[in-house]
Computed example of a mutant assay.
Amino acid sequence: MNTSLTLLDRNLQLVRYPQDLQHPSWQAWDAADEYIIEYVEQNIQDLQNQSVSIYNDDFGVLACWFAASKPIWVSDSFVAKQSCLVNLQQNNILIDAVTFYDSVTPVDSPAELVLLKIPKTTALLEQQLIDLQARVTPSTTVIAAGKANLIQKSTLALFEKYLGRTTTSLAKKKARLVFCQPTGIKSHSSPYPTIWYTDKPRFEISNLANVFARQQLDIGARFMLEHLSKLANMDNKTVIDLGCGNGVLGLYILNQHKQTKVVFVDESYMAVASAKHNVLLNLAEKEPQTDFIVNNCLDNFTKKSKFTDVDIVLCNPPFHQQNAITDHIAWQMFKDAKSVLQNGGQLVVVGNRHLDYPNKLKRLFGNATIVATNQKFSILSATKR
């Protein structure tokens, strides 16, 4: 892995988190990071005396570079925050130089300079621009950066709608900058959370902007729900809904099994907040049987959860981190599940049939059973022995 960023006669040592699971060809910054750093350094005066806010800094490169300005740092990703903390430390930058906010905690202070990486999820960008309305004035400078193919006319229209006049730079190394001049008019409210309903039973499912399957029940979860009865007996068990999203799987389990405890885990703050809201909205009486954790898979699980005797782990692993296609998250989920399960406990996975999950599970657990399959998905079960 390339860990050395040299730019404008400065050098930073940067890694992705968790470092030991990353592909050797990856690095912790991209051309958009370099482009926005170069532009700010060459065009923004008196930088250290401005209130700087950084959004969606995937691995902490912007926080490290602009640490002297004591920036506010906002992200929906627990993993991004851990990357940022590691990179601050290894570049001998005090962690106190950065003020961290998650995506569900309002930032009240005004911003003079906003540096924003364009997120993959358009809804998250929209929510962040809405949130920024309360923090910007006509004197605020807003600069966004991203891969050129992520910056569409619709992207620019969001900046225009919520903040003000917007222009773009020329493309450089397939990256582009967006410049926005806020008007200071705060006339738009948020369309989020998105709400939809399940059938039998009818649950109201509320989804904040960055939640996976925000607009409807995703087909992987639907397939898992169809076959829950084929899984191990969940009565009076402790179940982890790993990568819980809006929490719909755990919600069904709580409804069907009176004494079962469910731990909802996701690396997205918005996902865990949505899952908790959905439990309290639909099954408030089950709240004592639940726990909600924002985490990188199941890192230090026994220190973070009030329920530690785990019988079943359910997961639908993502196969991307930021914009990179990867299976390292699935592998970490599988390993972490094995480490927290009691002997005889089960990991239940739903995934696309083309993924090599059966062999991975057999290698790790020594066994793997196909519970159900269709043209797109397989549900697999592995038992800790």
Score class of each variant (00 low, 15 high):
274 S>H: 07
307 F>T: 03
114 V>T: 02
381 S>W: 06
259 Q>D: 13
208 L>P: 03
158 L>T: 05
126 E>A: 15
32 A>S: 15
33 D>E: 03
247 G>T: 01
202 R>W: 03
95 I>A: 07
67 A>F: 11
246 N>F: 11
288 P>T: 10
332 Q>W: 02
233 N>P: 00
133 Q>A: 09
373 T>L: 09
243 G>D: 01
322 Q>C: 03
248 V>P: 08
348 V>M: 08
51 S>M: 13
112 E>R: 12
237 K>Y: 00
124 L>D: 02
225 L>T: 01
17 Y>V: 09
215 Q>C: 01
104 V>N: 05
313 V>C: 03
51 S>A: 15
21 L>T: 10
71 P>E: 11
346 Q>P: 00
60 G>F: 14
106 P>N: 11
226 E>Y: 03
144 A>F: 05
164 G>E: 04
214 R>E: 02
330 A>N: 01
59 F>W: 15
238 T>M: 07
174 K>W: 09
366 G>D: 12
23 H>W: 01
334 F>I: 13
25 S>G: 01
180 C>I: 08
64 C>E: 03
257 H>D: 02
344 G>I: 09
268 S>T: 04
205 I>S: 08
30 D>I: 10
64 C>T: 04
306 K>G: 08
336 D>G: 09
134 A>R: 15
64 C>M: 05
174 K>S: 11
222 R>N: 12
220 G>F: 13
55 Y>N: 07
226 E>P: 02
123 A>Q: 12
216 Q>W: 00
251 L>G: 03
196 W>Y: 15
266 D>S: 05
117 K>M: 15
243 G>P: 01
213 A>G: 13
349 V>A: 06
28 A>I: 09
68 A>W: 00
81 K>A: 00
383 T>H: 00
2 N>W: 05
37 I>L: 06
256 Q>S: 13
62 L>C: 05
295 N>L: 12
11 N>V: 12
150 L>C: 03
46 D>L: 09
284 A>N: 15
277 H>Q: 12
228 L>I: 10
122 T>M: 13
371 V>K: 08
141 T>V: 15
96 D>G: 08
137 T>H: 03
203 F>L: 11
367 N>F: 10
314 L>G: 07
131 D>T: 06
347 L>Y: 06
124 L>I: 13
166 T>S: 07
155 T>V: 11
363 R>W: 08
266 D>C: 08
57 D>T: 11
3 T>G: 01
5 L>T: 10
282 N>H: 04
17 Y>D: 00
108 D>R: 12
68 A>S: 14
340 V>K: 06
74 V>T: 03
312 I>C: 03
121 T>E: 15
28 A>G: 10
124 L>P: 01
113 L>S: 01
200 K>V: 07
83 S>C: 10
382 A>M: 05
342 Q>Y: 00
303 K>L: 14
6 T>S: 15
136 V>F: 04
123 A>F: 04
173 K>R: 14
23 H>N: 14
100 F>N: 06
384 K>C: 06
290 T>I: 09
198 T>V: 10
83 S>F: 11
12 L>P: 06
179 F>D: 05
236 N>V: 01
54 I>Y: 13
